[in-house]
Amino acid sequence: MNHLRLFLRLVAASLRGQLRYPASALLLTVSQFLATGIEVVAIWALFDRFGSVQGWRIGEVALFYALVHTMFALADALGRGFDVLGTEFLRTGHFDRLLLRPRPLALQLMAHEVRLSRLGRLLQALAVLVFASLAVPIAWTPATVALALFCVAGGVALFLGILVLQGTLAFWTVESLEIANVFTYGGVEAGQYPMAVYARWFRRLLTFVVPLACVAYYPGLAILGRADPLGAPGWLGWISPLAGFAFLALSFMAWRVGVRHYASTGS
């Protein structure tokens, strides 16, 4: 069985396990939808009060919001295994079981628990995307659709890379450090607004350290057909999502160092 087929079977098994309790799965999904919906209400209240923020309208900000939350919803669903690596695998010694299986560790962890509840965040992001398309409006040509899919894929790679780094730190700390949430949930909060509204040092952090601007802001400008107020060239948005894949590759390099450091529980 090839890796992709095995991954899909493991994902299907995880989803079937959650659907054994359909009421619970539904309530968790709805709660995710409503929890992220509060953020939408906050953004709407901001623009309803002030009209625009440094020249940005609510429809444009809605596009950035939809892109970032779509990326994170997919990455969060796939990265659960890395998120709980320390408590569910390293501390208990169950990581040894993964090492004995003739399949990639990353594949096993990504398929460990694909959380169905993240569908609530994804649906809410897609609803905001529809709103953005009508409010701006956005001309969805084959090129812009392809760019949107490309930037979402790069964003999923970026957020998954952050979760991989969080899991890597657990080889030394056992407990997953909460500092990773600064770049996951904090990154989602920052990425749902245009980078142009932030201070220079913060823009540089989200461009060159954690390249969130590369997977959301610059592609979003290209989709909107809007020039960057900061002066970046228009073609940048068409290639910048590659930074997300580069970040994921670097994260897995660090991951391999962590795996070599692992010495089991000794029990």
Rank of each mutant, 00 (worst) to 15 (best):
D228C: 07
D228N: 09
D228S: 10
D228K: 06
D228H: 09
P229R: 09
P229C: 10
P229K: 09
L230N: 10
L230R: 14
L230E: 15
G231P: 14
G231M: 14
G231E: 13
A232H: 12
A232K: 07
P233I: 08
P233E: 10
P233T: 06
P233C: 10
P233H: 10
G234M: 12
W235N: 00
W235F: 05
W235L: 00
L236R: 08
G237R: 02
G237P: 01
W238S: 04
W238E: 04
W238Q: 03
W238A: 07
W238Y: 14
W238D: 02
I239G: 06
I239F: 14
I239S: 08
I239Y: 08
S240F: 01
S240Q: 01
S240L: 03
S240N: 00
S240R: 02
S240I: 01
P241E: 07
P241A: 11
P241C: 09
P241N: 07
L242M: 08
L242I: 11
L242D: 00
L242E: 01
L242A: 14
A243L: 12
G244W: 04
G244C: 06
G244N: 05
G244E: 05
F245D: 00
F245H: 01
F245R: 00
A246M: 15
F247H: 12
F247I: 15
F247K: 13
F247T: 12
F247V: 15
L248W: 03
L248Y: 06
A249C: 03
A249G: 12
A249Y: 11
A249W: 13
A249K: 06
A249Q: 05
L250T: 07
L250S: 09
L250G: 10
S251T: 09
S251H: 07
F252W: 11
F252C: 04
F252R: 03
F252S: 03
M253W: 14
M253I: 14
M253C: 07
M253P: 00
A254Y: 02
A254W: 04
A254L: 13
W255Q: 05
W255P: 02
W255R: 03
W255G: 00
W255F: 15
W255C: 02
R256F: 05
R256E: 15
R256K: 14
R256H: 11
V257Q: 10
V257F: 06
V257N: 03
V257P: 00
G258R: 11
G258K: 08
V259G: 03
V259I: 13
R260E: 13
